[in-house]
Amino acid sequence: MSGTSEVEQGDGRDRDPDGRARNARPRDGLGRPLPYGADGVERQPEGLVRSPEATVAEAQALLDGGKPFHAHEVFEDAWKAGPEEERALWRGLAQLAVGLTHAARGNTTGGARLLRRGAGAVEEWSSVTGRAHPYGMELGELAAWARELAGVVERDGTAISAETWAPRLRGRGA
């Protein structure tokens, strides 16, 4: 569990000390809640401001470890804290990670939809900004990966391995 102080209040919902809703239940590598007291995967701390390079490196490590839900949280931090002109990029990357999460959980329809939405978002950001390789990422390869995986999960209709299908954010040679 994270080092954040999380408490359960009288309404039965998990809340932080400031009263904001927080789910203190442990989660597995795909972000699914586990019973209280179970051993779960360490949650990503919320609201961290990382450099773009650190964001990409942390997200890649999580993706390689079969933890796309947690990679999505890293991208979400960049989306919320980054410069306005990059928010669509990080949001698109978060959608790709969530799409992979859903595909690995067996939600093939939602997974395929989010993978395609994320692919479109990073391609649109790239075309608007003229940047195809921000922070060493290969956006064209990521979009192609996402569309390929969307087709696979729709065709097969079964959960995939998040680790096996983890994308290479900086391309196949990275």
Rank of each mutant, 00 (worst) to 15 (best):
N23G: 06
R20S: 02
A97T: 13
G92I: 08
A146N: 09
R117W: 15
R32A: 09
R131I: 09
L142N: 00
T158R: 14
R131P: 05
P33Q: 01
L30N: 04
H133K: 11
A143N: 07
L62F: 03
R116S: 07
A71V: 08
M1Y: 06
V56I: 14
G47A: 00
E163C: 09
T109C: 02
A21F: 15
W79L: 10
G110I: 09
E138K: 13
E154L: 13
G37I: 04
R172K: 15
P167R: 05
G10Y: 12
G120P: 10
L34A: 04
R116V: 05
A143R: 07
E154T: 11
A24Y: 08
L30Q: 05
Q9W: 15
D64P: 00
L48C: 00
L100C: 03
L93R: 05
E6H: 10
A78C: 03
S51Q: 01
A150T: 13
G82S: 09
G99T: 11
A24F: 09
L89D: 07
E138G: 11
L34Q: 05
E53G: 02
G31W: 09
Y135S: 12
S127C: 11
S126T: 04
G118L: 05
Y36M: 15
A97P: 11
T129V: 12
R105S: 01
A54L: 13
A159C: 05
A150W: 12
E123Q: 12
T55H: 12
A88G: 12
P35L: 03
E141D: 14
W79K: 10
P83E: 11
E123L: 11
D14H: 13
A112R: 08
R32G: 03
W165E: 12
T109G: 00
D16W: 00
R168E: 07
G12I: 07
E42C: 01
Y36N: 11
E123A: 08
M137R: 12
G110A: 07
G12N: 00
E46C: 02
A21N: 14
